[in-house]
Design a protein around this nucleic acid. Structure first.
Length: 193
DNA sequence: AGGTCATCTCACC
DNA sequence: GGTGAGATGACCT
């Protein structure tokens, strides 16, 4: 018997995206483990994804684990433009993130650590991260963030290219829906496009 | 051992 | 502004 991964999704009023939250309930620890946060262009795509991953969809009006409701409220508050330190607030909810498991290598841990430490509205570049962790593997840094399962919580949208270009988001580059989402996130944190 | 990559620099045009 | 090569290094197969 494998652990069940539950999913909820909802539309944000402040973001042109469907937000999907997937999590597990750890019986032994009696707490939620957040598996991933993911964005979709529409609800149908989200549902398709949930099915292919074999997650258990929790319907809008169904019973929901209360910590997840809290998490959803946190995200909504953040997306409405409030200054919310998602990483610390989620710790406060006693929700497990399992970052060691999600980022098993030392390199990837160093990368996400510097990204987590960015304040709301604080920007950096792939180059600066490389500087900080003493690596010139800028593309590898991008690769770590490309596989970030917890966008917003690990605010990889605050990482731009050194020349001021937007850089990638959700694995995509150039003028895509994904990079536009990155722009929207920066905008709601007070950055002009 | 070879390919991919959300980058960067530098050299051109 | 725009290209394209080369460096770079982690992480896959």
């Amino acid at each position: 018997m494998v652990n069940i991964i539950f999913s909820i999704y909802f539309k944000s009023n402040h973001l042109d995206a469907i937000i999907l939250i997937s999590y597990e309930y750890l019986e032994k620890e009696k707490r939620i483990k957040l598996e991933e946060i993911k964005f979709f262009e529409n609800a149908a795509d989200a549902v398709t994804y949930i099915k292919t991953e074999d997650f258990a969809l929790i319907e809008e009006d169904a019973m929901i684990h209360d910590r997840i409701q809290d998490l959803r409220n946190l995200l909504t508050s953040y997306l409405s433009g409030k200054n919310v330190d998602l990483y610390n607030m989620i710790q406060g909810l006693n929700i497990k993130l399992s970052l060691k498991e999600k980022f098993p290598t030392k390199f990837s841990q160093e990368v996400i650590k510097t990204v987590i430490n960015l304040n709301q509205g604080e920007l950096t570049t792939y180059f600066e991260i490389g500087d900080k962790i003493k690596s010139r593997a800028y593309r590898a840094i991008g690769n770590v963030l490309k596989h970030n399962p917890l966008p917003l919580v690990i605010p990889c949208h605050r990482v731009l290219r050194k020349n001021g270009e937007i850089g990638g988001y959700m694995g995509k580059i150039d003028k895509t829906w994904e990079t536009n989402l990155k722009k929207q996130l920066l905008k709601l944190e007070g950055h002009p496009i």
